[in-house]
């Protein structure tokens, strides 16, 4: 159990996993990824800013020192490329028109 989940249960309000949390937002997923990550740059990276900062938790470190990334549940916020300190490791555009995050009550 993640620390977050434990904290929330201690305070007696409904526990919410990251999957449930991200499930509250609507994503219209396009088959083409709008994020690309240059794996070679990531293997040399020790700081891994994207892993901790991405609010959608899209970047996951792999056992061989690389980064596994998803694009499906992206908020299109821009955090990942702004915090990344490896020039050109993350290239990022907006998804195709009509696809991606659709906010309802923000």
């Amino acid at each position: 159990m993640s620390p977050t989940a434990r904290i929330e249960r201690d305070n007696a309000w409904p526990e919410i996993s990251f999957e449930e949390r991200i499930g509250t937002a609507e994503f219209r997923i396009h088959e083409k990824a709008h994020i690309t990550v240059n794996g070679d740059s990531c293997r040399g990276c020790t700081t891994r800013e994207c892993v901790v900062a991405c609010p959608a938790n899209l970047f996951v470190p792999t056992s061989d020192g690389g980064i596994l990334f998803n694009y499906e549940n992206c908020f299109e916020c821009g955090t990942c490329y702004l915090v990344c300190n490896k020039e050109g490791a993350i290239s990022w555009t907006y998804p195709e028109g009509g696809y991606g995050i659709v906010f309802h009550r923000t």
Binding site: N11, W13, P14, I16, E20, T24, P55, F75, G78, T106
Partner: peptide, 12 residues
């Protein structure tokens, strides 16, 4: 207290 998360969102 007792509130349910309806939508999670983020932006820069």
């Amino acid at each position: 207290e007792g509130a349910e998360v309806k939508e999670y969102s983020a932006h820069v």
